[in-house]
Amino acid sequence: MVFNEKITNPAELRHVQGRIELYWIYTSGEAGDVFFKKLRDEGKFTASKCRKCGHVFFPPRIYCEFDFSETEYMEISGEGCVLAFSVISYDSDGNRLEKPEIYALIGMDGTDGKIIHLLGEIEPENIETGMKVVPVLKPKDQREGKITDILYFKPVS
């Protein structure tokens, strides 16, 4: 039947529309807790260093993925340099954004790690890879201990 009696009138075709509405809490974990509390309360950045190989992880985590040993926390400046950037004109639903967003892969100073976050206070045509950037945080009373406490990174003026 499938091969010789197909529906040829698209107006007859049926479907049902559905959606999934689901909610979670996502725990930040021990390393995330250390990072986000320090960011919220003191505006400071935390990385973690492997006790065995010395790799400095950012984002911080409690174990080293290279040799599976434990890490220790260390404070870093939160500054870094742009390793790559992209200028995005559409949101996740495919709608044009009023103003394009600039995402950047940023190498974090004093670490072997990176962050992916937004760039601000700069136009796309003025961005260069290797450019030094610093984080801009929400005012302290508005910080919630989330990655969005960092508004964006901006070039060093």
Partner: peptide, 18 residues
Amino acid sequence: PVWLRPVGRGHPFYLAAL
């Protein structure tokens, strides 16, 4: 969901672009 998804509103193709 903690470190990346909440960053910006841009289409996730940004990661391929980077």
